[in-house]
Write a protein that binds this DNA or RNA. Structure first.
Lengths: 166, 166
DNA sequence: GTCCATGCAAACCTTTTGCACTATA
DNA sequence: TATAGTGCAAAAGGTTTGCATGGAC
């Protein structure tokens, strides 16, 4: 109930997609969309479910998964896997359209950045490998500024005589 | 037994790592290392276990997982997640040291390529965001040359009036 | 002989599915 | 009213863990 504020423009866009597909626009679907569209973060399924329940919704985890599947299909939402053992979801509206992610190994923070270089890489693999790019995943893992200033360093490891790293 | 051919140089390197860590060099550990180091592919745990059993080894899945963990720690092996629901492992010896992956959405083939641009991206995020890169993941998903010539296309979807894609 | 690794099976965790019931259109 | 969605619980699938046994050093 309360989690669906009114029907924000983004939720309406999702409703339009559902109607185009001949699918019912249900209360739960709008509620999940509302949570995802009103959050600037990269949410996990658990976080989405928790916010819905805190907002007074009665919703099952299965419905959250099923609705996220629809949101990803509609291309309004992107699915990410930062290697945490579960997925995160991020909407694609009102933000830099194509962007990559910096993930801090210390605090887990996710920073978005744009890179024109990646488009050059895609053009190059098309020319050199005959490979037609559809989408890409570019993630850089490291230590963010704040954690560096707090003294964090990259965890070392491996053989004492490291193998080639270039 | 039979899977451990002799003790290839790469397996010996892993043995050296184990001794450095004060860990026993066991038959199973050498067998897993041998399979990974003698394969040019990106192997799944299932594939590794199957090859070991076909080679006459008596080994449990848990040991494969535990040994892969050690191999990744030693930095001799890299872990990948191409979004298939399980992980793949690739050794880092005798091949292009740092490389990225093209993954065909049609046939699942993985092509390796090098990119100098990525290093420029890492230098840029260090300068612009104060972010210290440790490692990265660059994967481009699309259609490989062979599948294109066989008529494969990128699966479409989403809203009929697509949102910004640049 | 002392540790640590191994194999097996059970546990774990995220995600998916089956089914009786409910809501959309 | 017909169709499809929902919640719940069970299942699935990859990965991890507990424990008694066996192997490395």
């Amino acid at each position: 109930m309360s989690a669906v504020k009114a029907n924000t423009p983004f939720v309406r866009l999702f409703g339009r997609y559902l109607r185009e597909q001949g699918l019912p626009v249900t209360h739960q679907r709008e509620a999940v969309a509302e949570v995802v569209f009103t959050s600037p973060e990269h949410l996990s399924v658990d976080e989405i479910e928790r916010r819905l329940r805190q907002g007074g919704e009665r919703i099952g985890k299965a419905t959250v998964y099923r609705t996220l599947d629809l949101l990803v299909r509609s291309r309004l939402v992107e699915e990410h896997d930062f290697g945490e053992g579960f997925k995160r979801y991020e909407h694609r509206l009102s933000r830099q359209p194509v962007h990559e992610h910096l993930i801090c190994l210390e605090c887990g923070k996710v920073i978005e950045f744009r890179s024109a270089e990646i488009q050059r890489v895609e053009a190059r693999v098309r020319d050199e490998h005959g490979f037609l790019p559809a989408r890409h995943r570019v993630e850089i893992y490291g230590i963010c500024r704040e954690c560096r200033e707090a003294g964090a360093t990259i965890p070392a490891g491996g053989l004492t005589c490291p193998i080639d790293t270039v």
